[in-house]
Design a protein around this nucleic acid. Structure first.
Lengths: 218, 218
DNA sequence: AATTTCATGTAATTCGTTACATGATTCC
DNA sequence: GGAATCATGTAACGAATTACATGAAATT
């Protein structure tokens, strides 16, 4: 029943924060704006929307109505026999609050493969502080992975055939490329903030007191 | 129940074709040799192995026995109270036949994201003919995707913020890079038996090309 | 008028994971 | 003799898909 995902939920809240939409449109945005990495189907989306409504983070509005009453599907929104309503979803205050809490998170759930893309897509709404930690978290995750690959490659080089080797080589190159990309982004973020004192690199160390106090203005 | 996957099943058959192994070892190979792309857990692997045994594609052998009888777990393989047997899985003739049939396939199930990596990993056992079609299939799939991305980017460029744009740009670049890689591979296949060494291989280990001569022409 | 695109949803299924449970073997 | 690693499994859950079902609106 409760088809609540991490990624999909996050993306839906994020998109609806920008403006209200109905499901069909939402899905299109999901699969283009954020879409190289993830594609969602209606079978995931609609149940997710319902779950979010139930938790009070969204309200449904039947379009065509003027701005009168819009309590979560309060009135008999178009009889079942009549013309089917187009349901527009709007983020509630609680939903907005919840999304901002999600935005302020750091940790594996922000930099692992499944999550990173969608997090990045909403970096525009994320505080610089958090952006930095997510980028650095992802980079050190990838470097870790790279180290393992190198070790395993050194151990088994002889036993692998050319294609397997080539696959591995290409995989490693892809990861290395993403690391370079992240480094550029991190550097770029750094230049945005601190133009005074030089900065030694402090990878992945968690420092206290982020004070995510201000966020989300862009 | 029947936890039969496409990818996992294929990889298991392919690895066992090279040599018999027990589950634990199989899983390690799965997550290193083929591993940048996919990682499997025991919760997937063991049920899969059982299913493959049931279909007659694998047999279990309790190790420690000399090469006597090895009909699928025929005898009371070590009493439950005694020392637990290490179960070695071996590909049957039917299993081998089935795998070769899988190897000979082309089509979306060979070039889509989920499948391509594992297919490529077993290119050493695949006929050149099929290799070509898989590589070309994947390339045109990616080019299609690229076209969509470009179109969507042209349509929505104005409305997107910098981070979303950067994400999209990086995604496209990744795809373009894979297309170039595929083109090199295709070219290399076309040139035939002479040398597989493609540029950018800095591992020092120059291997005389597969001359992927050996098997499977149908 | 017919076809495509818009629009919403449900049921069953797929492919996998995590957490749990158990025990043997090897290294230090 | 304790820890790490080897080794095998099961139950419950997760996150998504596909196929199905329906119907309205716009385009040709």
């Amino acid at each position: 029943m409760s088809r609540r995902s991490g990624v999909l939920e996050f993306a839906v809240l994020g998109l609806l924060r920008e403006s209200p939409m109905h499901g069909y449109e939402l899905r299109k945005r999901l699969n283009t704006s954020l879409g190289v990495f993830r594609a969602f189907s209606y079978g995931s989306l609609y149940p997710c929307l319902k779950a979010l409504v139930q938790r009070g983070w969204l309200v449904e509005e039947t379009s065509g109505q003027p701005e009168e009453q819009q309590s979560g599907r309060a009135q008999a929104a178009a009889p079942l026999t009549g013309r089917r309503a187009k349901i527009v979803y709007r983020l509630t205050a609680e939903g907005k609050e919840h999304f901002e809490e999600l935005l302020s998170q750091t940790g594996p759930d922000t930099w692992e493969d499944e999550h990173f893309g969608v997090r990045f897509a909403f970096f525009g709404q994320t505080s610089r502080d958090v952006r930095m930690r997510v980028l650095e978290g992802r980079r050190s995750r990838l470097e870790e992975r790279l180290a393992k690959m190198r070790a395993s490659l050194a151990r088994t080089r002889e036993r692998l055939d050319d294609y397997t080797l080539e696959l591995q080589r290409h995989g490693m190159e892809s990861v290395e490329r993403e690391v370079r990309w992240l480094s550029e982004l991190i550097e770029s973020e750094r230049q945005g903030t601190e133009r005074s004192g030089r900065q030694g690199r402090q990878t992945g160390q968690d420092r206290p007191a982020p004070g995510p106090s201000d966020n989300t203005d862009r």
